[in-house]
């Protein structure tokens, strides 16, 4: 695929690309650009690692058991009420 994007356009679309919000066609163009352009590739990797870090942090925190039990209790009362 020919490199139809310049660096400025590639950077502008990177956020959408990393969130998989681009059309397949645009995603393909961006991927092609990243394969050929070292600076943009490096920047994309950096952004990717930032996003992976955020996602991982979310997984470290969850609903406390006490709250879960309380919600189940309240829901049961609500259901019995009809």
């Amino acid at each position: 695929m020919s490199d139809s994007l310049d660096c400025r356009e590639a950077i502008a679309r990177l956020q959408d690309y990393l969130k998989q919000e681009l059309t397949p066609e645009l995603a393909g163009e961006l991927r092609a650009h990243l394969e050929h352009c070292r600076p943009c590739h490096g920047y994309a990797r950096f952004e990717q690692s930032f996003l992976e870090m955020l996602e991982a942090r979310a997984g470290h925190c969850g609903c406390p058991d006490e709250l879960r039990a309380r919600v189940l209790r309240e829901l049961r009362i609500e259901m019995e009420r009809g």
Binding site: G42, R45, F46, E47, S49, F50, M53, A56
Partner: peptide, 8 residues
């Protein structure tokens, strides 16, 4: 730290 390892 080009890969942003510091975030982690």
């Amino acid at each position: 730290d080009p890969e942003g390892a510091f975030f982690s």
